[in-house]
Design a protein around this nucleic acid. Sequence first.
RNA 1: GCCCAGGUAGUGUAGUGGCCUAUCAUGUCGGCCUGUCACGCCGACGACUCGGAUUCGAAUUCCGACCUGGGCGCCA
Length: 429
Amino acid sequence: MHTPIRSVTPASANVEVIGWIHELRDLGGLTFLLLRDRTGILQVTVNRKKAPAGVLAALAIISRESVVRVRGPVKAIDKAPGGREVTPEVLELVSPCATPLPLDVVEKVPAELDTRLDARFLDVRRPRVTAVFLIRSMVLQAVSEFLWERDFVQITTPKLVAAATEGGTELFPVAYFDKEAFLNQSPQLYKQMMMAAGFEKVFEIGPIFRAEEHNTTKHLNEATSIDVEVSFADQEDVMRLLEELVAAVYRKVGETCAEPLSWLKKELEVPATPFPRIPYTDAIEIAARRTGEPLKFGDDFGAAAEKALGEEMGTHYFIVDWPTAIKPYYAMPYSDRPEFCRAFDLMHPRMELSSGAQRVHQYDLLAAQIRSKGLKPESFEFYLNPFRFGMPPHAGWGLGAERLVMTMLDLQNIREAVLFPRDRHRLVP
RNA sequence: GCCCAGGUAGUGUAGUGGCCUAUCAUGUCGGCCUGUCACGCCGACGACUCGGAUUCGAAUUCCGACCUGGGCGCCA
């Protein structure tokens, strides 16, 4: 059984390690071989005069990024990386690596994102890229744990759906036997239906699809959405849940991902809660003042406005009390001022992370709001019908997993937070 | 979709009409080297996105196509 490289210490006696040849430094009588697995890098030192013939034979044929197996005693050596090195008694080429490499795994020369994505499997071998995905994995684990601890039920909802019902974005049409179908833009309608099913607290982590032809560093055509819906809750309840979740995820990553964070040279700061709440009307004023743009009530925030607000706030913050007119039909208007609704966006200084709301749970009001958006209630009766049979008041949000990781790690392009991003021009690999 | 900037060895780059038989680094291959850690040294290999045009001469100028990056819009 082989030992993860992280666990090889100067106190280890005899170890077997398997990994990729990260670097080879042949000094003549002495060869240093850096072996890498996903947990770290280990120096293997071959002394030409003392090494067994089998080791020398293997050394002659191995090249960078080949997979090799090494067995031998561990020595504490101050001069070696990590203070330890292995002197191999066995060195075996397990799987050879072709040359030339499509990109430089040791990052002596950089590679452009496009080159990296074309050879993603190799790109991800680089510790700084491995780190992003180890952390992403922990983010999703931390989200699940946080929600499970609070009695949430994890659900999975269809990604193939019958109609473009939610509005606001373009959908991908797909052939579904003899019917027209679409890839779902979000689990919104289904998670609301689960409120009628009596689950009270549900969450889903899953893919969402948007057919927008955007070309930016923060949009994807396939993204991962963390969706939550809670019965007997209002928008304030789920905002508290959301800010606590974000802080908990940062805390968990900070506690458990010290090594990947160090590869990224990233010091995580847990954002202070509660996050500031800023009403939409104030946000418009601030953005208008700081950008000089003539923003008015009913406008959405463009890139410049979003940036200006981020600079003003300097931390995570909520924009609350949005105009009903620019939020989806399922957002609950305030009864005493129906031009505003109980919707919020969670913002990071760089971009929007999440949007949510208390939902409309009254059938008649929901049907009316659907009509007022120019949609036909008849065309998605499957969603509306549950509202006639004891739908509890509820609230929820959707949080972009890639954006959460991207802002946490200061990634410049959202594609860095996805193994195989789907964007306007990329469908392969 | 709009605007801007680009496309040169496997990778990342230099180059602005002849001095390009194209720079540098990294890499690969060969040689030397017993403590490297971006090892060092010597030698070799390897590229101008495609199609037209201008010109005595084009990597370099012009037109078109394709591709990429960034910004904006749309969107979350």
